[in-house]
Simulated scan of single mutants.
Amino acid sequence: MERDEGRRAELAANLQLVRERIARACEAAGRPSGSVTLTAVTKTYPASDVLLLAGLGVTDVGENRDQEAAAKAAEVRAAGANLRWHFVGRLQRNKVRSVIRYADVVESVDSERLVAVLARAAAERPVPLDVLIQVSIDGDAERGGVVEDDLWRVSDSVAGSDGLRLGGVMAVAPLGWDPDRAFAKLSVLAGRMAERYPGATTVSAGMSGDLEAAVRHGATHVRIGTSLLGMRNSLR
Rank of each mutant, 00 (worst) to 15 (best):
M1C: 02
E2K: 05
E5T: 10
L11I: 02
R21S: 00
E27A: 13
S35E: 01
S35P: 05
V36S: 06
T37W: 11
L38D: 07
V41D: 13
V41A: 09
Y45I: 09
Y45F: 14
P46K: 03
D49P: 08
E63F: 08
D66Q: 09
A71I: 11
A73V: 15
R77Q: 15
R77H: 09
A79R: 13
L83A: 12
G89L: 08
R90F: 06
R93L: 07
S98K: 14
S108N: 04
R113A: 14
L114W: 02
L114T: 04
A116T: 12
A119M: 02
V127E: 09
V127P: 00
D130N: 10
L132N: 11
I133G: 05
Q134N: 12
Q134K: 03
D140P: 00
R143I: 07
V147Q: 01
D150Y: 06
W152D: 03
S157K: 09
A159M: 06
G160E: 02
G167P: 06
W177H: 09
D180M: 03
F183M: 05
V188R: 15
A190P: 13
G191A: 00
R192H: 15
R192Q: 15
E195W: 09
P198N: 02
S208C: 10
D210T: 05
L211P: 08
L211S: 04
A213F: 07
V215S: 00
V222E: 07
I224G: 02
T226N: 01
L229Q: 02
L235F: 15
